[in-house]
Amino acid sequence: MQYMLLIYGDPNRQSTEAEMQGYFDFTKVVRQRGAFISGEPLHPITSATSIRTAGGSRGLVTDGPFAETHEVLGGFYILECKDLDETIGYARMINAIDDSTVEIRPVMDFAMEKVTPGG
């Protein structure tokens, strides 16, 4: 299964050198194990733009994230894992780097749903 790991952290905190190294090392580990599909850090939340529908108008462009939260999305990985426990193991490795909150979301696979026999 593929899982997306969404990494949330404090937007006012700069990553330390050691934390950056932690992410490099983590990426190396998941690549070596063949779990890495993709993963990138994101520019700070101040660079975010949201498009939404409000007051009956579609496509409104606004500055900033879609919702106000004290923890903001700072990066993500998509990993191929055996099951949720393996993914939790990777998420704990990320959490240990810089105390980030990691949300695990299974990726829907429409191609697989079609060939899976029902029942």
Binding site: M1, C81, K82, D83, L84, D85, T87, I104, P106
Partner: peptide, 14 residues
């Protein structure tokens, strides 16, 4: 099913 919660007795580390 969707989150892939494994069906097993957990390994020693868990």
């Amino acid at each position: 099913r969707d989150a892939g919660i494994p069906y097993r007795v957990p390994p020693a580390d868990l």
